[in-house]
Amino acid sequence: MTRTLPPFIARLDKPVLAAFGCIVLLLLVGSLYSSSFLSPEYLLKQLQVASFLGLIATGMMLVILLGQIDLSVPWVVTVGGMMSTAAAGWGPLGEALAIPFGILCGMAMGLISGFGVAYLRVPSMIFTLGMNAVAQGLMVIRTGGFAPQDHTTDMMHFLATGASILQIPNALFVWAAVAAGAVFILTRTTYGRAVYAIGNRERAAYLSGLPTQRVMMLAFMASGGLSAFAGVLLAGYSTKAYQSMGDPYLLPAVAAVVLGGTNILGGRGSYIGTIAGVILITLLQSILSVMQIDEAGRQLIYGSVIIGMLLVYGRQKKAS
């Protein structure tokens, strides 16, 4: 007598199941190093930290599903944090507009990247790397190379560090709202179907009448806006913005998306996998921190994970 899996589990890709399996394994390993690793308070703290990475990974997933990459994440995150705190210093109106202003700055950076990739046909790896350098130069010019003296708003601090309902971090609710929107767009809208179609075969999608250039540009705008939003929350979390605040998030964001089963060549992936990847990377960071492995070692591990996943899943054929 054969035993069938529940429909929900049966629909999950092998990489997604592997990611959830690794999460369980990391929880068990972490509990060996610290007795408080499995406590509700500690797990909620990890989910709060994961929320910042989750926002960035959401935008990164949209871009990767198209078969592209966004390497401007580090300094777009910094742009979001610095410009929102700068707006907060403009008085009451600036404080009210600080969060949307930071997000809009990130969307503007994403718009430029999207235009360059979609309309000028510059490879995304090259163009977004250039945009990252441009964003870095702009922020260095603005601050003179020193830490800015701007401050965060109460709302930024509340969203990043507060806990309103059942002591659940507000940042987790923010990520949940963004995740719900991403799932709806990818599974229930024409835009989501177009993203998958372009990732599978851009030329076929174009010949079928899909506005491929517009879809690409919107995806890069979303990536820029979400990265900047993460920068806003990070500024609220640390009560200030600072140089290179987004540097630690590029490799983890790519690793989270790839670990979650999204094909690096585009066209295949589910958001539940990205959620699993984000939680996995966050727990891995926590364990590496407990084990006192330095940043260089962590970057080595992230890079090895990405290469390993590419070797296992990256060579799979796209859906026809």
Rank of each mutant, 00 (worst) to 15 (best):
T212Y: 06
C105S: 11
G106E: 06
G80K: 03
F146Q: 14
L207H: 11
G21A: 08
S35D: 14
P123R: 05
L71Y: 05
A205F: 08
G80S: 05
V122Q: 04
D150W: 15
G162T: 02
G236H: 04
K14H: 12
Q292I: 13
D70I: 03
L218Q: 13
V183E: 02
I307D: 04
G110Y: 03
L104Q: 01
F101P: 00
A19P: 10
L129C: 03
R203D: 14
M139R: 02
D154L: 09
S227A: 15
T189Q: 10
L310T: 13
Y302T: 10
C22M: 15
V215Q: 10
L111Y: 12
S124E: 07
A96N: 00
L17W: 11
I23N: 04
S227L: 04
V174R: 00
G144W: 06
I293E: 06
M309N: 10
T282E: 12
C22T: 13
Y196K: 03
M125H: 02
L44N: 05
G145H: 07
G246E: 05
T161P: 00
S35E: 14
T189G: 10
P248K: 08
P211M: 11
P92A: 10
A194D: 11
L284I: 12
P123I: 11
L207K: 06
F146D: 13
E202T: 08
T128D: 06
D150V: 01
S289F: 12
V79L: 13
V178C: 09
A205H: 09
S208Y: 10
S270Y: 04
V174E: 02
P7H: 05
L218N: 03
P74V: 08
G236N: 07
P74E: 09
I264C: 05
T190W: 13
A133C: 03
P148E: 09
I99Q: 06
M155E: 03
P6V: 11
Q48M: 14
G308Q: 06
A230G: 09
A98E: 05
Q292S: 15
F52L: 13
I56Y: 06
L207Y: 14
Y42A: 13
T161M: 13
R268Y: 08
M125I: 15
F101Y: 11
I23V: 14
G116W: 04
S84L: 04
E95F: 00
V257K: 05
M221Q: 02
G80T: 04
V174K: 02
A296F: 15
I185Y: 03
E295F: 15
M109H: 01
S208T: 14
Q167A: 12
V305L: 15
L104K: 00
Y242N: 06
M82D: 02
F158V: 00
I301K: 04
L5F: 11
G21T: 09
S124F: 06
S270D: 10
L71G: 07
L62Y: 12
V178K: 07
V134L: 13
V215A: 07
L43K: 01
A296S: 14
G144I: 07
G89Q: 05
L186K: 05
Q316V: 09
T85N: 07
N200V: 09
L25Q: 03
Y42P: 00
